[in-house]
Simulated scan of single mutants.
Amino acid sequence: MGTKTRAIVSMAAASVMAWGGTSAKAQEQEKEPFKTQYILGVNFMPEWQIGIDGRRRAGNSPDFSPNVGLSFEARLTRHSGIETGFYYRNVKYAGGISLADPNTRYDASYSRYFSIPVLYKYYSRILNVGAGINYDFRFSQSDNRTSDAQNRFGLMVKVSKDITLSKGLFLEPEFHFNPFVDDGDWNEAWLGFQIGLKYRF
């Protein structure tokens, strides 16, 4: 057996032993009693508000909103938990010319929301998956009127992955889809990413 062949065989054997050791360690951890975990996170959440009924939003391209928020999770079993949080959403509606009357222009405007999700979350070593409802409370708009603020609710589905930084501290990148009811119709949605810096107690 040549030197190169022996080196390849040795590397393969070492890889198999390492994988076997990791697998055995994971199996041992699965057998240990699970203790309830509480997870607190600070999150940056860039999102786009898009139409989902095939129609473009009047006079606008998808609205980009660089949002932030806090999240809280209670991991009750090894694979199941509940997630909620409190997020700030700020949406800009671009100004332009009215489609009905080309002589009429309208100014850019803003809507500001507090967003509260309540989700069931499934945890695994590969991916975490969450699903539930989300409530958006609009607390202000650019002309400072709040009496006619339109609140809205929707569904939320998310997929994420834990990346361990140190004991208890980890990053969790996420992709989510949040269709919501606006003016009585399911015709718009939030589509976004999130990066959370989280600590597991």
Rank of each mutant, 00 (worst) to 15 (best):
I163C: 00
K158F: 07
R145S: 04
I126S: 11
N144D: 08
V157Y: 12
F114M: 04
D162H: 07
T146H: 13
D101Y: 07
D107Y: 09
S124D: 03
P117S: 07
I116W: 08
K121W: 03
V118H: 08
D101M: 07
H176R: 01
S147D: 14
A149R: 13
G154H: 08
H176F: 15
L155K: 04
S109M: 14
N128F: 02
R105D: 07
Y120G: 01
R112V: 01
D136L: 14
T146V: 12
L165V: 08
F114Q: 02
P117H: 06
F139P: 00
E172R: 15
Y123E: 02
F170W: 06
V157E: 07
D143Y: 08
N151M: 06
L127S: 02
V118G: 13
E174S: 15
R138L: 09
V157M: 10
L169S: 03
S160Y: 12
H176E: 03
L165T: 05
V129N: 00
A108M: 10
N151P: 01
D136S: 08
L165D: 07
F170L: 01
A131S: 03
F170A: 00
R125G: 01
D162T: 03
D143H: 08
F137H: 13
S115I: 01
L171I: 05
F170E: 01
T146L: 12
I133G: 09
G154S: 06
K167P: 14
Y120L: 03
F114D: 03
S115F: 05
G130A: 10
A100R: 14
S109R: 13
V118S: 13
Y110S: 14
M156C: 06
R105F: 09
L119V: 00
T104C: 14
Y110F: 10
N144C: 05
L165F: 04
G130P: 02
F139K: 10
A108F: 07
S160K: 06
D107T: 12
N144L: 09
D101N: 13
A108K: 09
N144H: 07
Y123L: 03
H176M: 02
F137C: 09
F137P: 02
L155T: 04
D107M: 12
F139H: 14
L169I: 06
S98T: 11
K158S: 14
S115G: 04
G132V: 00
V157N: 04
F114V: 00
G168V: 01
R125T: 03
S111D: 15
